[in-house]
């Protein structure tokens, strides 16, 4: 079967809260094809972020098989998993998570430090990425000097810079006004359309989800439906 980019089989995840065991994902299975732009929807606490974190390799399932970009990532040790993330995953967070002491350009350049690349090439690439998100003129600004929408665009440039297999975005517009949110969503659409990036986006906002090509619904740790979006 699997030429799927992401393949989940019977993924179970529980959290421990003191003595209590909280089931979050109760045996989730699905595939995501390369080139998809998928929105993960569901009410708050339904396990969307947990699922996304598993796919992005920053958390581990209790059981089940999790293959992403050809790697059974549940079997990797911490160091290999970190390398794997650096190669395969671009992150977009709700609160941007830029380094406050670095300029926009430096923030974008940051992941390239892991790439053993000459400094000039790093800077050049970072400039290109900033240009792609329309912020070439803000390269030297600190994050605090940028609006939320601009910060998120810097974050997108940072997610793109290593040319990852997969981009994960957890509520990327959750902290933005409608207009900035639309800018960000259109930018993500372009990444998907024009350079074929696979994007998985968690959101509880159906208008945001409408920008994706497919929507998956999660309810109480189980998939409750999958639909295609026709623009």
């Amino acid at each position: 079967m699997s030429d799927a980019l992401v393949s989940l089989r019977n993924i179970v995840k529980t959290y421990r809260r003191g003595q209590q065991i909280v089931p979050v994902l109760a045996g989730v299975s699905f595939d995501i094809e390369a080139g998809a732009f998928l929105a993960l929807m569901g009410p708050s606490g339904s396990g969307k972020s947990t699922l996304l974190n598993l796919i992005a390799g920053i958390d581990r399932p209790d059981s089940g098989q999790l293959i992403v970009a050809g790697e059974e990532i549940g079997n990797l040790d911490e160091a290999d998993l970190a390398d794997w993330r650096a190669r395969n995953v671009g992150f977009i967070f709700q609160f941007y998570n830029l380094m406050p002491v670095l300029s926009a350009l430096e923030n974008v350049e940051l992941p390239l430090l892991l790439k053993d690349m000459p400094r000039r090439e790093r800077t050049e690439r970072a400039r290109l990425a900033l240009e792609m998100v329309g912020l070439a003129d803000r390269a030297d600004h600190a994050p605090s000097e940028l609006s939320g929408g601009q910060q998120q665009r810097v974050a997108i440039a940072r997610a793109l810079i290593t040319d990852p297999t997969l981009i994960v975005a957890d509520e990327p517009t959750g902290d933005l006004d409608r207009e900035s949110a639309n800018d960000i969503l259109r930018l993500m659409q372009r990444l998907n359309d024009e350079i074929g990036k696979t994007i998985i986006m968690v959101t509880h906002d159906s208008r945001a989800a409408g920008h994706a090509h497919a929507i998956m619904h999660l309810e109480k740790g189980e998939l409750s439906g999958r639909e295609d979006v026709r623009a």
């Binding site: 992005a56 920053i58 911490e78 160091a79 970190a82 390398d83 993330r85 650096a86 190669r87 992150f91 967070f93 609160f95 998570n97 380094m99 406050p100 940051l110 992941p111 430090l113 892991l114 940072r158």
Partner: peptide
């Protein structure tokens, strides 16, 4: 804490 976690998510080692 969140910044250090972000760095680790990006692939930087502990």
């Amino acid at each position: 804490t969140a910044e250090y976690a972000t760095l680790k998510a990006l692939g930087f080692s502990p």
